[in-house]
Design a protein around this nucleic acid. Structure first.
Lengths: 197, 197
DNA sequence: ACAGCCATGTAACTTGTTACATGATTTT
DNA sequence: AAAATCATGTAACAAGTTACATGGCTGT
């Protein structure tokens, strides 16, 4: 939903043609998220279908110009005014760990350790990348900083959560509530025959 | 990609029928992510198409049983062994803020404030929910805790990032690199009349 | 009889995404 | 002349998601 909205927001500033939109998007996001041109055109088709943009005839150079409609403008205003609410996000890692805890024979601490290594590597990579950039000196630099920082914060949170989750799981295992860690050999068979309720 | 993998991982434990899979998924994730039954069947179709599961004849009760294939098992092993790597995630909020900074006439601090309010509300909601749950006493409770905690960590990171981003933007504005914040009076009116509610 | 859950499915749709075809223009 | 970039598109697919149709069965 966000590429779509971003392109619309850019079109709200001025009519553009497709190829130009990609450039605008990429500079405005600091080149952090390369965007396939094809996606611009498919997105424009869908925006046109939904009545948010119209083909505004042709450019001086003969390029196909798209312009925003009133409905489109109002959509942009709504987007900017309303906060992003991530309802019920199915976080891939959380889901994986939750599921893994219910599977017999899975070495969950090892899984966490593997993940931690990977996560910390990403974090280190991001921090190194970040430190190679000085203070933002252009709008594009600012966008780049914002995006990279958001990634850093998210990855840091992931790392912290991994530690926390490890402790939570260990505690649950100690209190005997959960069988996930020490696996009875037989459990595998039991699950196989009955399945679950 | 994660619902699909989770269902496959469950099937790796025992053959199941569709409706049962939903139940398994929901209990194994602590009921945090309700899953439409229809999605189970579409996912099963796709898994079958990809050769990861087969229809294993019928149940004692006449229900359609699905079983994992060797390819499916190997897929599950791969999934569990490999860390989750979120490459190039297009974070909706980061994108929105980055774009917003490049739009003339947008009151970015206000946007951030609105977002912060919403984010903190979500956070408070999550913490309240969390505190109503004591120590996990069952596998389902553990899953629930893990998921809720992951959400809390993510939302906290979002809140922290908002503060950080605010500072970054202010610094960029002070250093004169970016025009986004000080808005030409005229532009402001144009945007304002549309009404950010 | 009716409500409600169990159970299987299908059709339709969303956004995101890539790979490719096709030319025009520009650069080397 | 060849290579690269500009520019517009199409076809196809992924995964997620919902709404609906269709029965069977159970409890009130």
């Amino acid at each position: 939903m966000s590429v779509r909205q971003s392109l619309l927001a850019i079109l709200d500033q001025a009519p553009c043609y497709g190829y130009q939109l990609r450039g605008e998007f990429e500079t405005r996001t600091g080149g952090t998220w390369p965007l396939n041109v094809g996606q611009v055109y498919t997105t424009l088709d869908r925006l046109e279908r939904d009545g948010f943009v119209t083909r505004d005839g042709a450019d001086v150079e003969g390029r196909v110009r798209y312009a925003i409609t009133d409905a489109g403008s109002s959509e942009v205003r709504g987007w900017l005014a309303a906060p992003v609410v991530r309802q019920q996000v199915r976080d891939e890692l959380a889901m994986k760990l939750a599921i893994a805890c219910t599977l017999p024979g899975i070495d969950v601490p090892a899984l966490i350790q593997t993940q931690r290594t990977a996560t910390l590597a990403v974090l280190q990579d991001l921090t190194r990348t970040k430190s190679s950039q000085a203070a933002p000196a252009s709008p594009s630099d600012l966008a780049w900083s914002l995006v990279v920082e958001s990634m850093i914060f998210a990855v840091e949170a992931e790392a912290r959560w991994l530690d926390h989750a490890e402790a939570t799981i260990a505690r649950a295992a100690r209190s005997g509530a959960v069988a996930a860690v020490e696996v009875p050999r037989a459990a595998r068979r039991i699950v196989a025959e009955g399945g679950a309720r």
